[in-house]
Measured scan of single mutants.
Amino acid sequence: SFNTVDEWLEAIKMGQYKESFANAGFTSFDVVSQMMMEDILRVGVTLAGHQKKILNSIQVMRAQMN
């Protein structure tokens, strides 16, 4: 498990989005775990492969939080 959203993004090789997530207010796992595709688009993730990777990881995160 990760301590910060930045660490999580690095771990899934999506570190290039750290600033975008932070600027959009997605700075805690409570918020990130609620993200939908529209949120991912809003933070500027436009590549389908990256969207899928982030969404898949969020689903895993949700499962671990319950």
Score class of each variant (00 low, 15 high):
Ala11His: 15
Val5Phe: 03
Ser20Phe: 06
Arg62His: 13
Ile12Tyr: 03
Leu41Ala: 10
Leu41Arg: 11
Asn3Ile: 09
Leu9Asp: 00
Arg62Ala: 12
Lys53Phe: 11
Ser33Ala: 12
Met36Lys: 15
Val5Trp: 02
Glu38Arg: 09
Phe29Asn: 02
Leu47Arg: 12
Glu19Asp: 12
Phe21Val: 01
Val31Gln: 14
Glu19Tyr: 07
Val32Asp: 01
Thr4Ser: 13
Ser20Val: 08
Gln64Asp: 12
Asp30Gln: 12
Thr27Gln: 07
Met37Ser: 07
Tyr17Leu: 02
Leu47Pro: 07
Asn66Arg: 12
Gln59Pro: 04
Asp39Leu: 03
Glu38Ala: 12
Thr4Trp: 08
Thr4Ile: 05
Ser20His: 13
Val31His: 09
Phe29Ala: 03
Ala63Gln: 14
Met14Ala: 03
Phe29Leu: 15
Met65Lys: 06
Asn23Tyr: 08
Gln34Arg: 10
Met61Ala: 05
Glu10Met: 09
Arg42Gly: 08
Gln64Ile: 12
Leu41Met: 11
Lys18Met: 07
Lys13Asp: 15
Leu9Ala: 01
Ile40Asp: 00
Glu38Met: 08
Met35Trp: 03
Ala63Asn: 15
Lys52Ile: 15
Gln51His: 04
Asn66Ala: 14
Gln16Phe: 07
Gln51Ser: 06
Gly25Gln: 05
Glu19Trp: 09
Trp8Ile: 00
Leu47Ser: 14
Phe21Ser: 00
Met36Ala: 11
Asp30Ile: 11
Asp30Thr: 10
Ala22His: 12
Leu9Gln: 03
Met61Gln: 05
Thr4Val: 06
Ile54Ala: 01
Met14Phe: 05
Ser1Lys: 12
Thr27Leu: 07
Glu38Lys: 11
Val43Met: 06
Met61Lys: 04
Leu55Cys: 09
Ile40Trp: 02
Trp8Val: 00
Lys52Ala: 13
Ala63His: 14
His50Trp: 03
Asp39Phe: 02
Glu7Arg: 06
Lys53Met: 14
Lys13Leu: 11
Ile58Tyr: 01
Phe21Gly: 00
Gly15Trp: 05
Ile54Val: 04
Trp8Cys: 03
Asn66Ile: 14
Arg42Met: 10
Met35Ala: 02
Ser1Gly: 13
Asn23Gly: 08
Thr46Phe: 10
Gly49Gln: 15
Thr4Gln: 05
Val60Phe: 11
Asp6Thr: 07
Met65Arg: 07
Glu19Pro: 07
Ser57Arg: 04
Ile58Asp: 01
Met37Arg: 09
Glu10Arg: 05
Val32Glu: 01
Met36Phe: 08
Leu41Trp: 08
Met65Gln: 09
Leu47Asp: 15
Gly44Ala: 03
Glu10Ala: 06
Phe21Met: 04
Gly49Asp: 15
Leu9Pro: 00
Thr46Lys: 13
Val32Ile: 12
Leu47Asn: 15
Leu55Trp: 15
Ile12Ala: 03
Leu41Pro: 02
Ser33Phe: 13
Met36Glu: 15
Phe2His: 09
Gln59Ile: 12
Arg62Val: 12
Ile58Phe: 02
Val31Met: 13
Thr27Glu: 05
Lys13Gly: 15
Gln59Thr: 09
Gln64Leu: 11
Met35His: 01
Glu19Phe: 07
Val31Ile: 14
Leu41Glu: 13
Thr46Ala: 08
Ser33Trp: 09
Ser57Tyr: 11
Trp8Ser: 00
Met14Gln: 03
Thr4Ala: 07
Ile58Pro: 00
Ala24Trp: 09
Glu19Met: 11
Asp30Phe: 12
Met35Gln: 01
Ala24Asp: 04
Arg62Ile: 11
Thr27Lys: 09
Glu10Cys: 07
Leu9Gly: 00
Phe2Cys: 11
Asn3Leu: 11
Gly15Met: 05
Ala22Thr: 08
Ile58Lys: 02
Met61Pro: 02
Val43Ala: 15
Trp8Leu: 02
Thr4Leu: 06
Thr46Trp: 06
Lys52Asp: 12
Trp8Glu: 00
Ile40Leu: 15
Ala24Pro: 01
Glu10Gln: 07
Met36Asn: 14
Ser57Ile: 05
Ser1Thr: 14
Met61Tyr: 05
Glu38Gly: 10
Asp6Trp: 12
Glu19His: 11
His50Cys: 03
Tyr17Cys: 02
Met65Asp: 07
Ser57Glu: 15
Met35Cys: 03
His50Gln: 04
Ala22Tyr: 14
Phe21Cys: 02
Ala48Tyr: 10
Ser33Leu: 15
Phe29Met: 14
Gly15Leu: 05
Val5Gly: 00
Val31Trp: 06
Ser33Pro: 04
Val43Gln: 01
Ser1Asn: 13
Val45His: 00
Arg42Asp: 06
Lys53Arg: 13
Glu38Pro: 10
Leu41Lys: 12
Ser1Ala: 13
Glu19Val: 10
Val32Trp: 02
Phe26Glu: 01
Glu7Leu: 08
Leu9Thr: 00
